[in-house]
Amino acid sequence: MAESDWTPDQPMVSAKDVHKSFGALEVLKGISLDVMKGECICIIGPSGSGKSTFIRCINALNPINSGSILVEGQEVNDPQLDKLELRKKVGMVFQQYNLFPHKTALQNIMMAPIKVLKEDRDEVEQRARHLVKKVRLDGKEDSYPGELSGGQQQRVAIARSLAMRPDVMLFDEVTAALDPETVKEVLLTIRELAEEGMTCILVTHEMGFAREVANHVYFTDRGVIVEHGPPKTFFTEAEDPRTREFLSQIL
């Protein structure tokens, strides 16, 4: 399917039977899921179940062995793939923030639009300052990452991704390295994004967040999706024993 064929009524991200191995270890054993524009989905599951690996496949950080991932109709599992074009559409936020430590918060946000998208500096700066306010970091524009708390760094990282104006945002356990009290502020930022209609894919352990914000919850274990559903039914009427066990441990 060529890129031009994609229309917003089709899934924005569509994975079909995705397989991925690291050497002899098969991490993903046929993952399929669809995410529509404006949806927020959460992928939960025990560690080692392949959820982080899967989310990293969506923007081609990890190449997949077989299957198909379409992002706005563009096949990710294609040797001819223009990775840069794909990554302009897909933003990603990491567990360890990965801000550039030699640049201030504002520079971190502005750099990619200026250098990668070749956009006008003044316009980018305006947008960046707006984003800083949006993630509630007014006054921290000129702070270096080392001077910010984990939660603040993570919000800069979110703003940095948003500055590229992506169509989809991937969040890879973004609150896992944070103090409990700063988790809230990061989740609030993501929640606002989701409510504004940003398509979000989260790998998370925050069940409260998944229950309140997600449109759909996927539970993965040992490389497959065991069960999925809208949060209302997923958290109360899980059928698979593995899901039940996981939920009983974590809730």
């Binding site: 950080l61 840069l84 990965n98 030699h102 750099m111």
Partner: peptide
Amino acid sequence: IPDGQWEAAESLAYTRRQTLWLIVLPQ
């Protein structure tokens, strides 16, 4: 330089050359 720096740059669509000169080498 931690791999995370490369990955973050990659996911922001920087080319390898840009990543090296703008992000890795200054550090």
